[in-house]
């Protein structure tokens, strides 16, 4: 059991004319090793939610427990929590600052207090796993292209080997190829280390392919929570809040309505292919 959120609410600018409720009474349980997608419209509170998980934001009400410990306890070391819960922000390339990519990736491990040798080792490992060509390791991060900067920045968090990895819209502003590469990379690290991964996104298509649990946020509270196929059953409700199920879900539902004997379960193109072949084979 890694995270328990108990009635967590968050209000920005509390007590002023600009008060906004970003989170409203959120209850969640996140288990070790899960691959979770958090989905919601812009302003639904998803980014606010994940920033609570490593203590960057403090809930105005409610409590959060990590491995059974209250993270708002006076004696709790938030810096230690942050080394265990890695967070890749939106447009992470904007946080690069060192003279070389390599030094920047070392920043996280160094802050963890690891000896020089381990930092170097981890940086190499992380840079290799994000697939950045070796010739860029000692280049200035500002000379890299957008996609490569993003890889370097993600490596900076991976190098800390977090037990929980949170990614806030890691594919924003990337082309389809870059997007698939980044998501594949995340899935690979998850398969390899078995760490908990929380992927924040507004694209169902992205999320459906990788995660095994989806949390849908709407206006600061959790609207749906479950396996992708269960969540996509509610595709009409999803549409009402400005989201959409993957396109194959629509296809399967329409085929069903047209009287074809197919399952409406598939959420990815591959699953849909299998289902249709099965139907055709039965005929």
């Amino acid at each position: 059991m890694s995270f328990i959120l108990d009635k967590v609410s968050h209000r920005y600018s509390q007590g002023t004319a600009y008060e906004i409720t970003a989170l409203d009474n959120v209850n969640l349980k996140i288990n070790d090793g899960e691959f979770i997608g958090i989905i919601g419209h812009t302003g639904s509170g998803k980014s606010t939610l994940v920033q609570h998980l490593n203590g960057l934001l403090k809930a105005t009400e409610g409590a959060i427990y990590y491995n059974g410990q209250d993270i708002y306890d006076k004696d709790y070391d938030l810096r230690d929590l942050r080394t265990q819960v890695g967070m890749v922000f939106q447009y992470p390339e904007h946080q690069l600052f060192e003279e070389t990519v390599f030094a920047d990736v070392c920043f996280g491990p160094k802050n963890q207090g690891l000896p020089e040798k381990d930092c170097t080792l981890r940086a190499f490992e992380a840079l290799r796993s994000v697939g950045l060509p070796e010739k860029y390791y000692y280049a200035s991060p500002f000379e890299l292209s957008g996609g490569q900067k993003r890889r370097a920045a993600i490596a900076g968090v991976l190098a800390m080997k977090p037990a929980v990895l949170i990614l806030d819209e890691p594919t924003a502003g990337l082309d389809p190829k870059g997007r698939d590469e980044i998501l594949d990379l995340i899935a690979e690290t998850h398969a390899h280390y078995g760490n908990t991964v929380i992927l924040v996104s507004h694209s169902m298509e992205d999320v459906a392919k990788y995660v095994d649990r989806i949390i849908v946020m709407n206006q600061g509270s959790v609207m749906l929570d479950g396996a992708p196929r269960d969540v996509f059953h509610h595709y009409k409700e999803l549409e009402e809040i400005g989201l959409a199920a993957p396109q194959v879900t629509y296809l399967m539902h329409e085929m069903r309505e047209a009287g074809m004997d197919v399952s409406t379960e598939p959420t990815t193109v591959d699953e849909a292919k299998d289902a249709i072949l099965r139907m055709l084979g039965r005929k």
Binding site: R79, M87, K110, Q112
Partner: peptide, 8 residues
Amino acid sequence: KAQMARGA
């Protein structure tokens, strides 16, 4: 926040 998340 991003740097604090990296332990700054």
